[in-house]
């Protein structure tokens, strides 16, 4: 009886150990995947940082300004704009602007 009990205990212990090992193995696999995802995210963040820096570099004012000026653009000055109320309406000069 005792021998059977001992054998049963041994089997339960071994089974538990193997079950734990299997869970642990799965956990490690998941950890590995998380690590890979984290590395991928890190790489993506690095790429985003590079792209943001490149975009900022390409959009720097000393590069854009000559391009804008070559298209005839420049800072707004007196006469560049007009009041909405001054726009001629199809039926004559507008007297008020309603929002």
């Amino acid at each position: 009886m005792r021998l059977m009990l001992s054998t049963a205990m041994l089997l339960v212990t071994l089974g538990s150990a193997f079950a734990l090992y299997a869970i642990n193995y799965d956990t490690r696999q998941l950890e590995q995947r998380v690590l890979m995802q984290e590395r991928a995210a890190e790489r993506a963040l690095g790429d985003i940082a590079v792209l943001r820096a490149e975009r900022a570099h390409l959009a720097r004012p000393d590069r854009i300004e000559p391009l804008a000026r070559s298209l005839g653009m420049g800072p707004a000055a007196r006469g560049s704009g007009m009041r909405l109320i001054d726009l001629a309406s199809p039926e004559g000069t507008a007297t008020e602007v309603r929002k």
Partner: peptide, 16 residues
Amino acid sequence: AFALVGGQLMRLALIG
């Protein structure tokens, strides 16, 4: 001895 082996198995399984 049995407890030691079991304990070690559990430690390895849980902690690695």
